[in-house]
Design a protein around this nucleic acid. Structure first.
Lengths: 232, 232
DNA sequence: CCAAAAGTGTTCGCGGTACACCCATGC
DNA sequence: GCATGGGTGTACCGCGAACACTTTTGG
């Protein structure tokens, strides 16, 4: 390490952010990884992330790294947990503030941006070896997502703006790892009065086309303020 | 700031921990505060906390500060959120990892330790002006506690090891800010099979003495592993 | 004996769950 | 016309909510 220009009375940990970006396709939940070009863990897959600059907030750092390293913008982003084990980084003491994000794989900009070499989507159940303590971060993020999706309307962040009820049901089945009853699911979700029927239909399927719905955030906000709480 | 011995290539934020310690008495939920002896915010009340040393984990730093500044040990402690706004500290960039803790006010060691001048318990609803962004941290901690207490058996951390059902009910009423029905509450909590009746009775009250119960953590762990989930 | 809180059961309604068939469409 | 998933209703059961009186104890 080179002697630098910035000196402090006591030694300081380096501060980074790392992001677990989830995406959903027809079959499973995926996580966005980047391939490291530098040591340590050169060529290993890792979560997108990097050092927090002294003039940006943590959220800003997370969004900046997502954009710079993976071309991901406009996603749902939430702070997850801060990991401060002593030996998480072999070089020196590094504390990382982890975030998780929900991206719409249907968003063509994201698809395009993450088609780069060294950026990839991996099924959660079949991840490559990860650098640092990133497996652990992914594990914590997954638990959080599973909890959150049941009690808050965040699942929609993984779907296109207009989606069928079957897509939504599959989302819950994939994330929660359980099967749900079609009739009961539809009854419940529609009775919450958060979805509005559009006049669009699914296209390009070789069976009866499903009606598409959209999530009405204004309605949700209003209901939430008057004590309603979302639950699947 | 003196020029120090520790130099880095890029400027680094300072890293601190801050703890919101909750305690419960007969009437309300209290928060432990300490009075600052140094600038900035000299003499103002603040959350116990301080700088994270480069050779200790975040949890260790939180427990060390609790012990050093407030004499608080052996409490339930959980990481809350990391606050990284640019101007939270007027001196320089400081990122703080906030924790919340649940202390038994019935624990005489804690009572004794926090009887010191410059350490005090304040009702959550009537806090003095706080240093830095500590009001905000307390607000986030309170929301978390309210959420957590409903879905996890953490309320017991605020009560003495043996407690009456009425004490437990009051705990929920105070934290959640709602009234609960006595018969329904008792039915529900006892049906979970997490409390065991002791042969002790409440003492020194001028009415019929209540039976004391204790929380059986082993039983809870066993149930939790087989899919049971606590809920009030 | 009086004040104060402990302790105890039942009824009702809603919401969750289980369950099977016809319909529309593309090929 | 057939394969594929879309879309729909009902009956039952269990749990949460509402609700009032008797018992015990100390002073």
């Amino acid at each position: 390490m080179t002697a630098g220009l910035h000196s402090y009375e006591y030694p300081r940990a380096a501060l980074t952010v790392d992001c677990v970006v989830f995406g959903l396709d027809e079959k499973d939940l995926k996580v966005l990884l980047i391939q490291r070009r530098l040591t340590p863990f050169q060529h290993a897959w890792a979560l997108p992330g990097g050092f927090v600059r002294v003039d940006e907030t943590l959220d800003e750092a997370a969004r900046r790294e997502l954009a710079e390293e993976a071309g991901v913008t406009d996603v749902y982003l939430e702070q997850l947990y801060t990991f401060g084990e002593l030996d998480r980084d072999p070089r020196e003491r590094v504390v990382t503030v982890a975030y998780y994000a929900l991206a719409k794989l249907s968003d063509h900009r994201i698809r395009a941006a993450t088609d780069a070499l060294g950026v990839g989507w991996f099924p959660l159940e079949d991840l490559p070896a990860l650098a640092f303590d990133h497996v652990n971060i992914v594990k914590v993020a997954t638990e959080r997502l599973r909890g959150k999706v049941r009690y808050a309307p965040v699942g929609f962040e993984l779907l296109p703006p207009r989606f069928s009820l079957t897509q939504l049901q599959r989302l819950y089945e994939i994330i929660l790892g359980t099967e749900l009853d079609k009739r009961n699911f539809r009854k419940k979700i529609l009775s919450m009065d958060l979805l509005v029927e559009t006049d669009e239909m699914e296209r390009g399927v070789r069976h009866r086309a499903a009606r598409l719905y959209r999530f009405d955030r204004r309605r949700y906000d209003k209901l939430a303020r008057s004590g309603f709480s979302f639950a699947i």
